[in-house]
Simulated assay, not measured.
Amino acid sequence: MSQVQRSAPKIELHVHLEGTVRPGLLAEIAQRHHSPLPERLEHLYRFRTLYEFIDTWNTLTRCLRSPSDYRLITLAYAAEAAAHGAVYLEPALDAEERFGGPAGWADILAACCDAADEARERFGVTIGWTPQIFRGYDVAMGEEAARVATRFVGRGVVGFGLSGAEGRAATAPHARAVRIAQEGGLPFVPHAGEAAGPEAVREVLALGAVRVRHGVRAVEDPDLVAELADRGIVLDVTLTSNVRLGVTPSLARHPLRTLLAAGVRCSVSTDDPAILDTTLSDEYAVAEELGLSAGGAFAAGLAGALCDPATRARLATVGELAYGPTATWASP
């Protein structure tokens, strides 16, 4: 990818903040908390399935504990993403038991929102947070996490998510947490269509999902693909992740081309760039090889973004300056 392509404006809607921490910074944080990482870290990065990846993710991120840790990693990824042209990010942020419950979650969110303000000033990147719980999480704690998230509406939190492997734990027990977030002003942006097929995507759509993180296995059901296109539901596609976690056997056989041909809007993201050894520029470059231009990815990102109207208008102007009149880059 040329320097011009690297610096072209980009939107990223599917990135886990905890998965952005490069090994050097992660080791520094772990040492500070006297929480040493395994000596042979390279072995952890050799996962072959989604479930092995989740184990790796848990091992690598459990040392992230304090608000200051989260401020630091927010600024680090904002700087990295900005170097790859990012102008808007919607990172996911997990409500973890290690934070000690609602008060701890609130402290982490407050630090992240403050760091987002700093990142905007220092790096020119706007961040909208999408805190999330995971399938299999304690139901009552998940509902409390949703309540905490709604306290930050207007301070930088723009949505609420649900992650985890659909194939191992159910979505339904978390429906009330989703409703609490929605009633508090936070749209629902879940993971689905990764570990499980079209039925998982339909399930989250029934809960009111306004966007789907992954969703690529919707291609197994042409009627669902048509529905996604008709409704303008954006899928946040993570190409390297899909290959490394076995969602698709290769980039050449990735469903992106089929989805685009059917008129489905697809944004482009890294998922967990530090763990997957990728960058936002890498993902945009691969997407272009599969038929999704940088302008098209930006347009889908803008369509799916949960930002306020003023930010949306500013991003649209950025897109027009980079990619030409809206009509030339904003169509599926």
Rank of each mutant, 00 (worst) to 15 (best):
V4K: 07
Q5V: 07
A8P: 00
P9M: 04
P9A: 03
K10I: 02
I11Q: 07
I11A: 04
V15S: 02
T20Q: 03
G24C: 05
H33L: 12
S35E: 13
P36M: 13
P36G: 14
P38W: 09
E39N: 15
L44V: 10
Y45F: 15
Y45P: 08
R46K: 15
T49I: 03
F53S: 04
D55K: 15
D55E: 15
S66F: 08
S66I: 04
P67I: 07
A76H: 09
A78L: 03
A79G: 05
E80I: 09
A81K: 00
A86K: 03
L93P: 06
R98H: 09
G101W: 01
P102H: 01
P102D: 00
G104S: 03
D107C: 08
I108K: 02
L109S: 02
C113V: 01
E118H: 00
A119F: 01
A119K: 00
Q132L: 15
I133L: 08
F134H: 14
R135S: 10
R135F: 07
G136H: 06
Y137W: 09
D138Q: 11
D138Y: 07
E143F: 01
A146E: 05
A146W: 03
T150N: 00
R155S: 09
G156R: 01
G156C: 02
G159N: 05
L162S: 08
G167S: 10
R168K: 12
R168N: 08
A169I: 03
R176Y: 06
V178F: 03
I180T: 02
I180N: 02
Q182G: 08
G185V: 02
H191M: 09
E194Q: 14
A196N: 05
P198V: 07
R202W: 02
E203A: 15
A206Y: 00
L207C: 01
A209K: 01
R211I: 04
R213P: 07
G215E: 09
G215F: 10
V216M: 14
E220I: 05
P222M: 06
D223S: 08
V225C: 06
E227K: 07
L228H: 01
R231I: 03
G232D: 10
G232L: 10
I233L: 05
V234E: 08
D236S: 10
D236F: 08
D236G: 06
L239I: 15
N242T: 06
V243T: 09
R244C: 04
V247T: 13
L251A: 10
R257G: 12
L259E: 11
A262V: 11
R265L: 15
V268H: 02
S269Y: 03
T270V: 06
D271A: 08
D271T: 07
D272C: 05
I275K: 00
L276N: 06
D282R: 10
E283M: 04
E283I: 02
A285L: 12
A285G: 11
V286M: 14
E288R: 11
L290V: 11
G291I: 10
L292V: 11
L292T: 11
S293Y: 06
G296V: 08
A297N: 09
A297K: 07
F298L: 05
L302A: 10
L302W: 15
A303M: 13
L306V: 11
D308Q: 07
A310S: 13
T311I: 06
A313H: 13
T317H: 13
V318R: 11
G319E: 08
L321W: 05
A322Q: 01
A322F: 01
A322K: 00
Y323W: 11
P325I: 11
T326K: 13
A327S: 14
A330C: 14
